[in-house]
């Protein structure tokens, strides 16, 4: 009986060992990112993605890191490279996983492109960004990142062009309750965006 238990336990730990290797590597990568080492984190995620071809999250986070970094890049070439690399991942991997989350990422990448030269690119990219967020909401109406991302983009635009943002702030409130409900079973499923939405609401004029 004991032996059987041991055998089962041994097998169980073996089975879960493969799982934990992925989970362990993912946690390590995300910790690296939290610690501010985004180059190392993105590299690690790229390795995980190459090893786990059916997982979407390693690539998703790799692209998320690249695009987040692109907002901070001061050098135009570096910025373009980060965006371009993020976009390549999005187009290659977005068939896997949540299409809504990928679309939010795409909208972020377009926003980063726009911030490089808003006066000239605004006319061209703003409609695309809004459309992409709307597609993300269509794919998953409960995605808080799509709702708050769209609201934030519109609030920022209206600072420039004028107009009333009341509706957007209501959407941000709604997004907050969606963040509350957001309980995905998949480990490492994206959860980011809540702090930003809260900060936006605090700054509401």
């Amino acid at each position: 009986m004991k032996a059987l238990l041991i055998i089962i336990l041994t097998f169980y730990s073996y089975g879960s060992f493969a799982q934990t290797a992925y989970e362990k590597a993912m946690s390590e990568a995300l910790q690296l990112w939290e610690a501010g080492n985004s180059t190392e984190a993105a590299a690690k995620l790229e390795r995980i993605a190459a090893a786990e071809k059916t997982q979407w999250l390693p690539s998703y986070y790799q692209a998320l890191i690249l695009i987040t970094e692109s907002f901070r890049a001061t050098d135009a070439t570096q910025r373009a490279q980060l965006i371009q690399r993020g976009n390549t991942i999005i187009s290659q991997k977005s068939a896997l996983g949540s299409s809504s989350e990928w679309l939010v990422l795409k909208a972020l990448s377009l926003t980063s492109e726009l911030t490089a030269d808003p006066m000239n690119l605004g006319q061209k990219l703003s409609p695309k960004i809004i459309e992409t967020y709307q597609q993300a909401l269509k794919a998953d109406p409960e995605n808080p990142r799509a709702l708050s991302g769209l609201a934030e983009f519109q609030i920022q635009t209206k600072k420039f062009t004028g107009g009333n943002s009341d509706k957007e702030y209501k959407d941000l409130q709604k997004a907050l309750s969606l963040y509350e409900k957001d309980q995905h079973k998949e480990p490492f499923y994206p959860t980011w965006g809540r702090d930003r939405a809260e900060a936006m609401i605090q700054k509401q004029p």
């Binding site: 590597a25 180059t39 590299a43 690690k44 390795r47 995980i48 190459a50």
Partner: peptide
């Protein structure tokens, strides 16, 4: 600097 070198299909690699 910051290049990613790794063995495809494993987690082994370094920057």
């Amino acid at each position: 600097a910051g290049a990613n070198v790794f063995i495809d299909g494993s987690y082994d690699g370094a920057t």
